[in-house]
Structure formats: structure tokens, C-alpha cells
Amino acid sequence: MSKFSLLIANYNNGHFFEKCYQSLISQTETDWEAVILDDGSTDNSLDIIKQITQNDSRCKIYQNEGNKGIGYTKRRLIELSEAEICGFLDPDDALVPQALEIVLKTHEENKEAGLVYSNLIFCDEHLNPKSVHKGKQITALDESYYNFNGEISHFASFKKKIYKQTSGIDTFLKIAEDKDWYMKMCEVAPVKYIDEDLYLYRIHNNGISTNKNTEKALYWHWVALIKMAERRNVNIEDLFVQNYVSKKRYEHVTNTLGRVKNSRWAKLGNTLGLFKIFKYL
């Protein structure tokens, strides 16, 4: 049995998979399996992935009968995995070479921890690093654990025996299924943050929770939060009111900002170099 199961849910991302796979075969820890589940891709992703991994027995490839969604696919990946320690890796992303070695060492040193996670590196569409997003050690079931600011993020790995103490990944969730199971893991066992930059996160237009899908991801995050509130019998109504911005209010602010930007006084001030912030309006 492998030490670590890498769980890869694919939908139309085969054209990105080459760098993902290269990052796996470059790992300093070589005792791993990659469980790849295609969620009914409508392109040639499956053929590309099979071609890339053709001689590597560590890669096990499966396919859903039609498109089932990210929640179903990730839950099924856990069921298909063999290792006691697992972690999700998206096919359009990659790991730094020491990622698995560092994560496994941290799990070994923190046997009580159900979830181990690190920092991620935001990259452009070609996987060139742009900036680092730092995680945060969660010590209580407070607002940090709600994960508004990505306190828990990639590279997130877990002990399967502790994951099984939760209700598992919610198949109803279309996006933000990770926020849901992160919270569940915090509720049943301690979690451990590694202050290391282990995960290369690609930003591109078709990303499930980036760019054009950002607001959808926020909606599904709130669905996960409401389910958490029901599970723990806590009231998050005030929290929602504090964070919610109505469309009417948003449009009012946008229109006001537009009028300021287009006023002749603002343009004159910009010409004279008085408004350094003008270009950011």
C-alpha cells in the first residue's frame, strides 16, 4: 500500500495535466499513488491523461458515468484511494518537489491532527509564480475556521480514519466543497498548518472558483456555512448581514465611483498630478 494517495478530479483540464504529472514524478517522496477520476469530460482530457501516464503503474484512472459534479467526484476519489493519508491535487495545478515529503513528515509528527495544510503559490495561466497566499493555524471554531480568507487552503491532506469520523464531502455542493470538509475536519480533530509554500495554484478563466466563477464560489461557501450552522446549532445570521452586499447597494457605489472618475475636476487633478490614485478608480 502506498504512503500517500493523490486525488485528482478532472473535468476538461487534460490540456493542463502535463505539468501536474511532472510535479508528481519530481517528488522527493516516491511512494505514492495518483487516483484520477474524470467527471464526464466533453473534450479529449481522458485520452491526454492516459497518454501522459501510460507507463506509470502508480496512476489509476477512472471515469464517472456522465458528469456528477465536484462533490460526488471528490467523495468517490476518497473511496477509490488505498493510502491512509490523502490529499487533493487539481489537474491544472502542481506541487513543489518536497511537498509530499514535508506533508508526510508533519502527519507523522502530529498523529492527532486530522488535516494538514500549507501555503499556496498563485500562478498565472502558464503556472508562473506570482504571489504567495499564507494559511493560518486554526485553534478554535471561530471566524477563522469559517475560512473567509483562505486560512485553510492547498495543499490540504488528511488522515482517512479521521475523515471517516465526519459525514464526508457533501455531494450536493457544486463549488466550495473543500470549505465544507475543512470545517468538518476542524470539528472532529486538531488541524496542523505548515508554513511552507507547497502548492502551485493556476489562475485561468475556466477555474472552478476563480475569475468569472468567484461570485459563484462565494455563494456555495455560504451554503456550506449554513450547513455548518445547522450541524453545530449556531446562529450565523448576523455574520451574513455583516458580509452581505446587496446588488442595489453595490450598483450605487459603482455608479458614484464612475461619476467621480469622469468628473472634469478629477480629470484636471489627474493631469496636474494631484491624484495619484486616479488610475486605480
Rank of each mutant, 00 (worst) to 15 (best):
K50Q: 15
M228R: 09
V253E: 07
L120S: 14
L218E: 04
F148V: 10
E196T: 15
K161N: 14
S57G: 05
N235L: 03
F88S: 06
K276E: 12
V241W: 09
T256L: 13
K184G: 13
K74A: 03
K276S: 10
V241N: 12
N12M: 05
H126Y: 14
F122S: 04
S209G: 06
A156Y: 10
N235W: 01
N10A: 09
D238W: 02
S45G: 02
I48Q: 05
Q22R: 15
E65W: 04
I175L: 11
Y145G: 12
Y244W: 13
A9M: 01
H154G: 15
M185L: 09
A83Y: 00
E33V: 03
Y163C: 06
Y163P: 07
F155C: 15
S2E: 12
R202L: 02
I48S: 10
D238A: 13
G207D: 06
E82V: 02
L257I: 08
I48C: 02
A156I: 07
L239T: 10
K164R: 10
T254C: 05
K164I: 09
L37W: 03
S167E: 08
Q242D: 15
F122E: 14
S131T: 07
T106F: 08
K60T: 04
K216Y: 08
S246T: 14
E251R: 12
L6S: 01
L24W: 07
N206I: 00
F172N: 13
P97T: 14
D43W: 04
G71E: 01
K68E: 06
G71Q: 04
A156S: 15
E33P: 01
R202M: 07
V103T: 09
S157K: 01
S5N: 08
L281W: 04
Q63Y: 13
A83I: 03
L257R: 05
S41H: 10
T30D: 06
Y11A: 00
L218Q: 10
Q27K: 07
S246Y: 05
G14D: 00
G66F: 00
N262I: 14
L225Q: 01
L115Q: 03
K267V: 11
Y219M: 06
A99N: 08
D39W: 02
S131H: 11
D93Q: 09
Q27G: 00
I48E: 00
Y146Q: 06
I49T: 07
